[in-house]
């Protein structure tokens, strides 16, 4: 129980937010942050723990979002059922991409760029295929009932997003403490050595990308229900791939709370710079970029790494000696 205590505390604290404030601005802010945290948690499993940096998590996010939307709009399926199928579809895409790329032994930047290419291929297909509504996109009709996974108020959405994040935190913590988790980290640190010790690196990575995809896919389903409209650029665009990797890296890649911390940090950063810059177009994002560079300079191991460094100063931190991932 002790290993999960921190998760329980964090989730309980977040769950108390609606009791403190009824402001929908705050709730909406937190919902979008949780959405990014969820997508980022998926990336974190594969990238943070497994060392496989994907630039194409949009492939999983988008597939799930489209599956959820299309099943409802075209086949009249219930939104909740559709969301589960959407998650499964995202996981399947993850498994297929993983099987293809890991089988060919793609690593490092090559893996990163090939995932990006997969996401782009899906984006292009979605922008021309009739089933996705092609360029017009897919609009889920308004039906503000719980059974349709739509709510008049922001609060239920908030709790659903929080529940999803809670589940993802638990899953990642469980993996961290499992044999599979240990294998995954071993593969990250030195794949050849891990293989020599009898770890089936291919299966470990394949399993990781599938679970990773499923988690990010959950964020896709949630997005579809929250905004009710998707098109190819939203579903498969680079924005989500970038947010999904930005959050965990800023927060601390390979740590359970990294994605959540990072998502809250970058969203807060975005809002703060907006306040500072007032109404001048571009100025807020200019500060945002500047601060991002500054934060990396000050906290090279992410926010989680920073807090650890403060509590346990000068713990010898040997990074991967092999700077090249080529």
């Amino acid at each position: 129980m002790k290993t999960y205590l921190s998760i329980i505390v964090v989730v309980a604290l977040l769950a108390a937010v609606p009791m403190v404030t009824t402001s929908n601005v705050v709730l909406n802010f937190l919902v979008t942050a949780l959405l990014i945290a969820l997508a980022g948690q998926g990336w974190n499993l594969l990238g943070g723990y497994g060392g496989q940096y994907s630039f194409g998590h949009a492939a999983f996010f988008g597939t799930a979002a489209y599956a959820t939307a299309i099943l409802q709009v075209r086949y009249g399926l219930n939104a909740w059922v559709g969301s589960f199928i959407g998650m499964a579809a995202g996981a399947l895409v993850g498994a297929v991409i993983g099987a293809l790329t890991f089988r060919s032994g793609l690593r490092g930047s090559y893996f990163s760029l090939v995932t990006l290419a997969f996401a782009e291929v899906l984006r292009i297909i979605a922008s021309v295929a009739p089933i996705t509504g092609a360029g017009v996109g897919t609009l889920i009709p308004l039906d503000l009932h719980a059974r349709a996974f739509q709510f008049q108020s922001r609060t239920p959405f908030y709790f659903i997003a929080l529940a999803l994040v809670a589940v993802s935190l638990t899953v990642i913590r469980a993996i961290e403490n499992s044999r599979f988790g240990a294998y995954l980290v071993a593969v990250r640190e030195n794949e050849d050595a891990a293989s020599a010790l009898g770890v089936d690196a291919f299966s470990v990575k394949l399993c990781a990308i599938t679970i990773s995809a499923a988690i990010t896919a959950a964020a896709g389903c949630f997005y579809a229900q929250y905004f009710l409209f998707i098109d190819a650029g939203i579903a498969y665009g680079p924005w989500i791939s970038i947010d999904a990797l930005l959050a965990p890296i800023v927060g601390g890649a390979g740590t359970v709370f990294g994605p959540l911390l990072g998502a809250l940090a970058i969203k807060t950063l975005g809002e703060t710079t907006k306040l500072i810059a007032a109404d001048a177009p571009g100025l807020d994002l200019m500060f945002y970029g500047l601060l991002l560079v500054g934060i990396v300079g000050l906290a090279p191991r992410g926010i989680a790494g920073l807090s650890r460094a403060i509590s346990r100063p000068r713990r010898s931190s040997i990074s991967t000696p092999d700077g090249s991932r080529g």
């Binding site: 922008s127 021309v128 092609a134 360029g135 017009v136 996109g137 098109d231 190819a232 650029g233």
Partner: peptide
């Protein structure tokens, strides 16, 4: 035409 909502529609 451009291939998003406006052109495609």
């Amino acid at each position: 035409h451009e291939d998003s909502a406006f052109g495609a529609g």
